[in-house]
Design a protein around this nucleic acid. Sequence first.
DNA 1: GTCTATATGTGGATAGAC
DNA 2: GTCTATCCACATATAGAC
Lengths: 195, 195
Amino acid sequence: MARTQGSHSDITGPRIRKAALGLFARHGYAAVSMRQIAKDVGVQAGALYNYTPDKQSLLFRLMQDHMQDLLAAYGELEKPADAETALRRFVGFHIRFHMERPDEVFIAYMELRNLTPENFSEIEGLRRAYEDSLEAILQDGQKSGLFSVADTKIAILAVIAMLNGVMTWYRAGGRLSLDEVEQVYWDMVRRAVTA
Amino acid sequence: MARTQGSHSDITGPRIRKAALGLFARHGYAAVSMRQIAKDVGVQAGALYNYTPDKQSLLFRLMQDHMQDLLAAYGELEKPADAETALRRFVGFHIRFHMERPDEVFIAYMELRNLTPENFSEIEGLRRAYEDSLEAILQDGQKSGLFSVADTKIAILAVIAMLNGVMTWYRAGGRLSLDEVEQVYWDMVRRAVTA
DNA sequence: GTCTATATGTGGATAGAC
DNA sequence: GTCTATCCACATATAGAC
């Protein structure tokens, strides 16, 4: 039986999220209107509310999906026994995963303050779970005497902050290949934590 | 002669900037209305326009003042001849200067996309001037064989990104003193760039 | 310099026809 | 499921009285 004219539930939902993703990343959540998103998708503003109860949920779902994807992808990596190899793999994974999703990363970092308190807690929990995976590597390396950092908690945040810096300047087709970027960062991270 | 009743040009201007600073940092430029700022100051919204032609100028001036303060303060530091001491001083300066101005720093990083193109270029120029001062230190250290980094441009951005990470977690009265934080970061930066 | 009042536009979200 | 039409709150900015 033919679908009702103008009915596209299977494709409009993803298109809405994709449009919101791009617009939120470019202009910021607060600066983007539901009408802009609708226009990008090619529907009227009212139609968006068949897919999201409100604008906040749209933002939250984008961030939640991103963080869950991150944790799932990291979970599928094999974990080498030796800490240096594990850290190297973490650095490579982090850079590549984030480079492939610049909009999601940008939003996850910039729009935390636009989440409701409940939604914020949820995202914070996911972020911490990811940081814990790096902490495990650093502590393992310190036990074996391979690594040495003055403060593990700070080192985790410092390494992640350093790696996230890639997103602010790297552009495909630039001076360096992704392999080279990964190598340069790994070199600095390794030296920063090695005993 | 007595001032006109309700006239406070000498104090209202700074209060407006201070209120805007706090509100922009907490909620984001796009999410803050001129009415909110006015309420915070204790005047009506229309009165703000005696001090700023528009909301955009308010944002721009906050960012411009911050970057100019940063460059001026760094310019007044004495510059040790040896690169390691110079880098150590840079790290300490950067951490302390930024920790004392969390709102300004937050805005300078988060609200770049809400500047008009002309204003953006202006701020970008100031930011680059600051990065150049770190580049000079790293290149000096590499000439003397003290430092060794795979890519100087990346190293600059990596170091600054790492240091800026402090702002996301440090709170006065926490586990570590500012001296300790400075020491821990210096330790990582030094190792990351030392030959 | 600040106020009140207002012009003018846009925001999120909903109702009901198709 | 999407549309049109609309409610109502709030946005930036200005005008003119005091």
